[in-house]
Nucleic acid binder design. Structure first.
Lengths: 229, 229
DNA sequence: CTCCTTTTGTTGAAAATTCAACATACTTCT
DNA sequence: AGAAGTATGTTGAATTTTCAACAAAAGGAG
């Protein structure tokens, strides 16, 4: 765990990512180091498949993915994995829980590949300290904006999973992705099992459905590349 | 449509509800009138089954339910209704969409019974005007908190609907409600069809499952009253 | 290159859901 | 009280999903 106060030099290499992080919108690069210092930001590394946040633990920290990809998941008592969303470099995660005092994480965050993660204690954002830097208001505004976007993303996820058949779920999801990519051709951030866990369906049934849609000429796909026809 | 600036007297009768609305946390009753005036709050009435917000329309206003109950719904192209959440007096709704510039509502809000609704133009909250009252920072903070809570509520909804069988969905939902009520006995804000639309299952199948669970002695229920045994 | 592991596709049987249609109970209104 | 309308429960058939087991393909390590 690096404390960047002691190793400021390390931060510079993350500026490109941090600039893209909407949590830091409207904050100048020159102020970033000071602010992160004030917030007590820490950085840690995780190997593939490692747990960044564990379900059931107190939710105190907001995470910011500096590199790699991760998944927000929930596992029920039968061991079924449900993927709530994916996290890419520049994305923040777990804000909602961290912003809720004394809340317990109902989800886990798992590294999909080697990850660098920045952690910020939410109390340093929420409870304005008078002797501290003056960015809190901007941070809270950004946090609000980010939570609004996450909220809308959940609506999309429910729009997908509320469909009753595997085919409908898949097509609804692919249409969303197509719109997002502004193209008929796009890649999705899932392998088959992960896609099934996101759509809340059986993997083998999903494979069958993709096969049918290919034969019907509705779509073409190779691995995580898809093309709607 | 009442403009309360002209009819301040009317606002007083809503103070009890507004005090419970987390959007106005930390704002003194004496300041409320001034603030709502500054925000250009308007009040309107809706009869049962009337549309408060319509899917596809621009999302500019935050709604606050002063009396009655409402439902946040989505209807797909086959006409299947999906209930995302319920709204009770003192709850606000549609904040996430209103906070996102130029966004289009992906949901509708429908009055469940006669409703009084207050509308606040989100731009009056988001864009601080210098010649205006000084409550914006508090409002944005409250909005952030509220969005965090909504976010967590969505996690719960997904926790329910990610289950694969009607029985599992129902039991997961009832457990949540039981925890929320801090008791084995509680009422739910749904009739059968609405519960089915919230759980994303078939109504008749839901009735069958409730019947089975009663016979098995897992629960007892009468209409929207439930008891877990 | 080969072996080993992981991912993806395929199949058939069992289980569950959906759908439509109808019966019964409950509300509401006059 | 009675009628009309709404909500809930029940049933069987058709569709769909899940599950388990295996085959084929792809990827990674030595």
């Amino acid at each position: 765990m690096l404390n960047f106060q002691q190793k400021e030099i390390f931060l510079k290499k993350y500026f490109d990512v941090l600039k893209k992080c909407s949590l830091f919108n409207g904050i100048e690069e020159k102020d970033l180091t000071i602010m992160l210092n004030c917030l007590g930001a820490k950085i840690d590394n995780f190997d593939k498949k490692y747990t960044i946040f564990a379900e059931g633990k107190p939710a105190r920290y907001i995470g910011i993915l500096l590199s790699g990809t991760a998944q927000i998941i929930q596992i029920d008592y039968f061991g079924n994995r449900s993927i709530l969303s994916t996290v890419e470099a520049g994305n923040s995660f777990a804000e909602a829980f961290a912003c809720n005092d004394n809340s317990i994480l109902p989800i886990s965050v798992i590294a999909n590949e080697p990850c660098e993660v920045m952690f910020i204690d939410s109390r340093h954002i929420l409870h304005t300290c008078t002797n501290c830097c003056g960015f809190h208001q901007q941070l809270i505004y950004n946090l609000m904006k980010e939570l609004a976007i996450k909220n809308i993303a959940f609506h999309q996820k429910i729009d997908v999973t509320s469909k009753r058949t595997t085919r409908e779920k898949l097509l609804t999801y692919l249409n969303h992705q197509s719109k997002k990519a502004n193209s008929n051709r796009f890649t999705i951030p899932f392998d088959r099992q992960s896609l099934a866990d996101y759509l809340e369906v059986d993997r083998s049934g999903l494979s069958v459905e993709i096969g049918k849609l290919k034969k019907e000429g509705v779509l073409d796909s190779h691995k995580n590349y898809f093309e709607l026809l």
